[in-house]
Design a protein around this nucleic acid. Structure first.
Length: 525
RNA sequence: GCAGCUGUAGCUCAGUUGGUUAGAGCGUCGGAUUGUGGCUCCGAAGGUCGGUGGUUCGAGCCCACCCAGCUGUACCA
């Protein structure tokens, strides 16, 4: 028999871009999902679930002019050679579901769902190849009221999760506005399509590179810090100025506090302090700012009208710019959004692993996708929705101290000091379980020391000990591990520590359950 | 994809101009203490030095290529 060397053992390794989740993380995320669900239910949305796998054509991810799916999606062929893919978001599968069950569903159809999605691309910090999204969508409502509701619901959700008002903002824009501006500066027409894409990508990077970086990307191009060069959109100076007038207009939609009453500002509107003066951020002002340039194009006028309606509805419902703000640099996905787009951004800073201050940034987004369901049907079907990045939001919440991924209390451990009496120990475990207390019998083969160590690692509230001495007296020893740890701090001598048995007391076996309950409830208080 | 940086024990890292048997701390396991967590002390296990080829009497160290990871950037439904 050949000698089996350890070095030949199969290496246990997690594929890159994927994560294991331990008990604390799972419980924390379940709690978080429950909170989100509650908000959505309150808005009248109902759950629906679709599978992780769809036909690739339903996801719309075949490469153009090729019989192969996009590399970014995990795909494989069925027995009949049809391509299947792991879903890469929850929107395309919903569109498939709605189209397939169109007659049976009440419309407008409001639904929500949480689930894993997969992207086969390079992982990075905070970017995984499998991650969870939590979506809500309204299908069959063309009214901007549906979009406004999405924004309000997103704001309510973040607050329900414990993110204070002012530490987040929902930014809203409209793709028709962006299209309108581009049209106005002479970028209309099929031949300019790729240039328009480059422009949109450049605008999307406003918060990353700032106005100057975007200016470079709109013009000749930009070199990053590793020396790599990104080619720009090649706009001329006049076009760039006009574009930035709309897109870089953030600082302009404010009015001085003295004038706020005249503009009917709400309490909930953002106030910006600069020196002695204070100014209020108003959604209506940024829209006024755009009026002239957008009037030059039909889609610009449309987009502006939709945003005005959204802004008015938000105001009526009492949502000021602290919560939802018209923001010209929001772009979102390039493929299917057709109207209003939204993004949920966290504003607070935290310290990352390297001690560098870091912003969480976007934790969710969405928008109107009027073409997506219609792909499956002969008539157009309007739809709007948004998606929350669950893992990212969870990282943010734990940084805020709103949730903890620390392991919570483990089960009570009944130790085995006498191997012949497993039945007796099992009976104690059963009694505890019947009383609704998490409890387990030590199932390993090690001695008392190891058993105590095990209970310590399980974060058990207490252990139950009954050796020969206790049996003779009809009692059990109960050791409160937390109390013992506290008492041990002042003891440095091991003999004394063992003699003292900190946190340990003796009760008649009949009082076992009551004594354990006392410890658990004491720890909770 | 492009660019830069980095690969030595489970983790964090030392390792001399290229010179015998590659080390430390932490962690793990065991013992002191077979009826008790922590502290302390003692001991043990754990390595194809990322891979392949080359230079050399001799490579963890030098060279080439490859692989992986990290960071930035591109793409991102």
């Amino acid at each position: 028999m050949a000698e089996t060397k350890k070095t030949h053992a199969l290496k246990a390794r997690l594929p890159r871009g994927l994560v294991d989740r331990h008990a604390g993380q799972i419980k924390a995320s379940e709690k978080m999902l429950a909170t989100i669900r509650e908000v959505y239910e309150r808005y009248g949305f109902e759950p629906v679930e679709t599978p992780l796998i769809e036909y690739t054509d339903a996801l719309g991810k075949f490469l153009p002019d090729q019989d192969r799916p996009n590399e970014g999606v995990f795909s494989f062929q069925d027995d009949d050679e049809q391509w299947l893919s792991l879903r890469y978001d929850l929107t395309a599968p919903l569109a498939r579901y709605v189209a397939e069950n169109f007659e049976a569903l009440p419309k407008p159809y409001r639904s929500y769902r949480a689930g894993w999605v997969f992207r086969n691309e390079k992982p990075g910090p905070g970017r995984f190849r499998q991650f969870m999204q939590f979506d809500a969508d309204t299908v069959g409502a063309a009214s901007p009221a549906a979009d406004a509701e999405m924004c309000m619901m997103m704001a309510d959700t973040l607050e329900a999760l414990g993110i204070p008002r002012g530490q987040y903002v929902i930014r809203v824009n409209n793709r028709k506005v962006l299209d309108g501006v581009m049209e106005a500066i002479g970028l209309a027409g099929e031949d300019k399509a790729s240039q328009r894409l480059t422009v949109l990508r450049a605008i999307d990077k406003l918060d990353k590179f700032g106005v100057e970086g975007v200016r470079l990307l709109l013009g000749a191009g930009r070199k990053d810090e590793s020396g790599d060069f990104t080619k720009g959109a090649d706009l001329d100076e006049a076009q760039i100025i006009e574009l930035l007038q709309v897109v870089g207009a953030d600082e302009k939609h404010i009015v001085s506090l003295q004038d706020a009453a005249r503009f009917d500002a709400a309490d909930d509107d953002e106030v910006v302090k600069a020196g002695d003066a204070s100014s209020v951020v108003l959604n209506s002002l940024v829209l006024d700012e755009w009026e002239v340039i957008l009037s030059r194009s039909e889609s610009g006028r449309q987009g502006l009208a939709e945003l005005r309606e959204i802004a008015a509805l938000l105001k009526s419902a009492g949502y000021g710019t602290k919560r939802v703000r018209i923001s010209p640099s929001v772009v979102r996905g390039l493929e299917y959004y057709t109207g209003p787009v939204f993004e949920a951004e966290l504003l607070f800073e935290t310290v990352n692993d390297d001690g560098q201050p870091a912003r969480f940034g976007s934790v969710g987004g969405g928008g109107r996708y009027d073409g997506l369901v219609g792909r499956f049907r002969s008539e157009p079907v309007p739809a709007t929705g948004f998606s929350i990045g669950v893992s990212r939001l969870m990282a943010a919440l734990s940084a805020l101290g709103e949730i903890s991924v620390e392991a919570e209390a483990g089960p009570v451990v009944v130790t085995v000091f006498d191997r012949d009496r497993m039945g007796d120990y099992q009976r104690m475990v059963k009694a505890l379980r019947d009383a609704g207390i998490r409890a387990e019998l030590y199932l390993g083969g090690s001695g008392p020391k190891a058993q105590l160590k095990y209970a310590d690692r399980r974060n058990s509230p207490c252990v139950i000990i009954q050796g020969g001495d206790e049996l003779a007296k009809g009692v059990v020893q109960i050791k409160d591990l937390a109390a013992g740890k506290a008492a041990a701090a002042s003891v440095s001598d091991n003999a004394a520590w063992r003699e003292e048995r900190p946190g340990q007391f003796e009760v008649p076996e009949a009082e076992l359950v009551a004594a354990v309950r006392g410890i658990i409830e004491g720890a909770r208080a």
